[in-house]
Design a protein around this nucleic acid. Structure first.
Length: 206
DNA sequence: TGTCCGATTGGT
DNA sequence: CCAATCGGACAG
């Protein structure tokens, strides 16, 4: 797929990723799901982002590269999180993919996840990485490639997209309450329904 | 080298 | 609510 739409800020790109298919081809088969929830991490100014302050290390390196590549990191020693790098090269921004609606390879996902409940396969950043078998081995991969890639699938109108603050970023001070979490309205596959702050996405806020 | 901690998850 | 579990960031 064309990476042009990822050449913008993470906050602009995140809602555009909703409805896209995230696919991973492995020797075991193809597993894919439609993105229904994503969060923007907006670079050096964003104190919730790994690239805050321009921090450039082996871990964050992928975010400094061109858009349309994979930024994968491990968390809590046992989970992985997958991000789509956005913004022009040199601007370290990324969109965390938080939930998918399973579309292809449900059996394979179930085997990897240890449950067949479709609501528990890809609803959560750690869960979807386990279901699609995305790990550090996929770090930096070009998402316009043949192994791990994005594909057109569905389009959502602004009225079908909701926003809320990002999940678990209370450590951030300045940007903690930014409405940079985007999710598909009424999708049962969203990782968790926010209590407060639920709102219609207003594209003017970006 | 040593310490601290998390963009999570699953089970009490 | 709480523990699991370890790579990365940073201080020394």
């Amino acid at each position: 797929m064309n990476r042009n739409f990822l050449e913008k800020s993470a906050a602009e790109a995140a809602p555009l990723l909703l409805g896209k298919l995230l696919c991973h081809r492995t020797p075991e088969g193809l597993a894919a799901g439609m993105i229904v929830e994503a969060e923007a991490y907006c670079g050096p100014e964003d104190d919730a982002a790994h690239s805050f302050g321009g921090r450039r290390t082996a871990r964050t390196e992928a975010m400094f590269g061109p858009p349309g590549h994979a930024y994968v990191f491990s968390i809590y020693g046992m989970h992985r999180c997958f991000n789509v790098v956005t913004a022009p090269e040199g601007s370290p921004q990324a969109v965390l993919i938080r939930a998918l609606e399973p579309v292809e390879g449900l059996e394979l996902m179930a085997a990897r996840r240890g449950t067949a409940d479709p609501l528990l396969l890809c609803s959560g950043p750690g869960r979807l990485c386990q279901a699609l078998d995305i790990g550090l081995a996929q770090y930096g991969l070009d998402l316009c490639g043949e192994e791990l890639f994005l594909a057109e699938y569905r389009d959502f109108s602004p009225g079908e997209i909701c926003v809320s603050p990002r999940v678990n970023v209370d450590y951030a001070v300045e940007y903690r309450d930014r409405l940079w979490r985007f999710f598909v309205k009424d999708s049962p596959y969203v990782s968790r329904v926010p209590r407060r702050y639920t709102a219609r996405a207003t594209l003017s806020r970006l």
